[in-house]
Simulated assay, not measured.
Amino acid sequence: MFHPLRVTEVSPLTDDSVTIAFEVPEELRAEYRYRAGQHIAVRRFVDGAEIRRTYSLCDAVPAVPAAGDGSAAGDGHGPRTLRVGVRLVEEGEFSTYALKELAVGDVLDVMTPAGRFVLEPRPGRFAAVVGGSGITPVLSQIATILSREPGATFCLVRSDRTAASTMFLEEVADLKDRWPDRFQLVPVLSREEQQAGLPSGRLDEARLTSLLPALLPVTEVDGWYLCGPLGLVTSAERALRALGVARSRVHQEIFHVDEVPSGPVADPIPGGATVRATLDGRGGSWPSTAGESLLETVLRNRSDAPYACKGGVCGTCRAKLVTGEVRMDRNFALEPEETDAGYVLACQSHPVTSVVEVDFDA
């Protein structure tokens, strides 16, 4: 669900990125309570056209206060402020607006937090491989688990083009200063030599396969978190698989995917297809137009259907397939155990049978 939130801060991070802070009114704080690693969708209208973009929340989730302390920002009622990092994307409609026009006092529609790329505080050893703006959700994860769980350690391998392009450089350095014995930071620059540390260059599969075991016992890590461009995440996943890491311990979120060809177009279903959907406890049944995704069919009849990117990346449109079969063109959001359990991305799924039923509430 979207609510209009006032912008309270637009601060430069690098030459091509900013942080944006939104004020959460008291009556909405519970709705915007979030877990470390989740994201929000931001919506604006331009010449009648709707633009939605998804951004991860980058602040730490406030620790639960001691009994009787109900006045702190982390008093359990939800955040007073939401903060996201936005990097300029070439020809990006929203990112260009955010960096060049957005100002304090402006109001934007902001969806309540969503996403399953989360790390719940618990004792153990954790690690992440991130690239570029992929630091955003992981920054929240690191700050939250280190502040809440004294029995946790974290190793962060981050890749950036240059030092000047590195987002949240000071925030990560502060975490290192606060927990020097529990937080290991390994920065890598792909286009600039560092005075100390690792040589410059891309973190490809071969390099990660060699590097990671030198940093920590990879198979003893309780959770690996991979976030960034598709190439980096895929390379890291393959390296971890080659090193014997169990798939259940690897979690990933893609921040950018180039356009890829859709799958083969299925033959038209005789008589057309019917899409049934349950959303917010209400059901409906509608005919599907040839070539439409499940999400497009539902949106024609229910404007409140959840979505953000429509690219198979964010996972906002996740739904449980109840009956029928679908063809899912691409999936960069659902874990294998989710697809095994019957979950699909509605924005990428097309009917293969005459009747398809999905449940957005499941």
Results as ranks from 00 to 15, higher is better:
A98T: 05
D340R: 14
L185K: 05
S71T: 15
A30S: 11
V129C: 02
T112H: 07
L208D: 13
L211K: 14
G151Y: 00
G74S: 04
L279Y: 03
D258L: 07
V89C: 07
G342H: 02
Q141V: 03
T209V: 02
L345N: 02
D280L: 10
R125S: 03
L102R: 03
L232Q: 04
E335G: 02
M328T: 11
T209K: 10
G124F: 08
E149T: 10
G197C: 10
D280W: 13
S71A: 14
N331F: 12
N301R: 10
S349Q: 08
A63S: 11
T219Y: 09
S200V: 09
G92L: 11
L139S: 02
R148P: 04
C227S: 03
Q38G: 07
Q194G: 13
Q252E: 02
F360Q: 05
A246V: 12
S288R: 09
H256G: 15
G271W: 10
R327K: 11
P180K: 04
C347T: 08
R43C: 06
R29H: 13
I269E: 08
R249K: 13
D258C: 06
R35A: 08
V64Y: 07
P351N: 01
C317T: 07
R302P: 07
I40H: 04
A305T: 04
S235H: 10
S159V: 01
Q195S: 15
I145R: 00
D361K: 03
A66D: 15
D69V: 09
P336Q: 07
L334S: 04
F360T: 05
M328F: 00
E9A: 13
R202I: 12
L28I: 00
V358M: 12
A114W: 01
V130A: 12
E50S: 15
A49M: 14
Y55T: 06
V245L: 01
F45Q: 14
V172S: 07
R238M: 12
V172C: 05
S248Y: 09
P4Q: 12
G197K: 10
G291S: 09
V110L: 05
T353Y: 14
A30N: 05
V245F: 01
G263S: 06
G324E: 12
H251F: 14
A341G: 09
Y34G: 01
T162N: 02
L208H: 11
G271M: 10
P217Y: 14
R33N: 10
L169A: 13
E325K: 14
A114C: 04
V138G: 01
